[in-house]
């Protein structure tokens, strides 16, 4: 085994092990933090597979932004910080069976299909920032622009969804009881300021 293969195997073990901890830990904040380890290991896998720019994007967007958003969501939904016993549904065993079946089908498929193929990483084109930028802006311009419109739509959607005073808010008030009170006070405070 070359050192590249050793590094890859170690990164893969770290990724799978921490991913297992993400899905089994009883502490929600720990799950988010183990997700950081998984995503970092996946960024290392990208580096080994000659996708340099993608690795840094992974670190910036996933580890930097997505995990912080998840932690914010845990905080805003008042998730308890201690360990909890009721995070998993009672159907854990059949779910584990389904997941094992998925893993078995996928692994046998890819091993049967690609066991002969070797990846020559010395010859691979390194996806540096220059290379990726040239490819995106020369050959993938239209998907890139469509993606920017999609991001704008997602931004507007998120703003509309998280506004407190949309039309559906009044209907839900009696069902919401305590939790909507905070929203209402925040709303009235906003009106008073105006």
């Amino acid at each position: 085994m070359t050192w590249v293969q050793v590094v890859f195997v170690l990164l893969g073990l770290v990724a799978v092990g921490s991913a297992l901890l993400v899905v089994t830990t009883r502490n929600m904040v720990h799950a988010a933090l183990w997700l950081v380890v998984t995503l970092g290991a996946v960024a290392g896998v990208y580096l080994v597979l000659a996708a340099e720019f993608l690795a840094w994007v992974q670190v910036l967007i996933y580890v930097g932004a997505v995990v912080v958003l998840l932690l914010f969501a845990l905080m805003l939904t008042r998730a308890p910080t201690g360990p909890q016993t009721d995070l998993d549904a009672r159907r854990a065993l059949p779910a584990a069976g389904v997941a094992l079946l998925v893993a078995a089908v996928l692994v046998t498929t890819v091993v049967a299909g690609f066991s002969e193929v070797t990846l020559d990483l010395d010859q691979a084109i390194v996806g540096s920032a220059e290379m990726t930028g040239a490819t995106v802006f020369e050959k993938w311009v239209l998907p890139f622009e469509v993606l920017s419109v999609l991001l704008l739509a997602a931004l507007i959607g998120a703003i509309v969804l998280s506004r407190a005073d949309t039309a559906g808010a009044e209907d839900d008030e009696d069902a919401a009881a305590g939790s909507s009170d905070t929203a209402d006070t925040a709303d009235s405070r906003g009106r008073g300021g105006r």
Partner: peptide, 30 residues
């Protein structure tokens, strides 16, 4: 490096994700 190494890693991560979606009750964990 054989091509199936990263593919197997991806398959395992995918299966773990499927397990999380099926078994977790909290929407953020899903």
């Amino acid at each position: 490096m054989p091509l199936w190494w990263p593919l197997v890693l991806a398959s395992l991560l995918f299966a773990i994700g499927v397990y999380a979606v099926l078994v977790r009750r909290n929407a953020v964990l899903v």
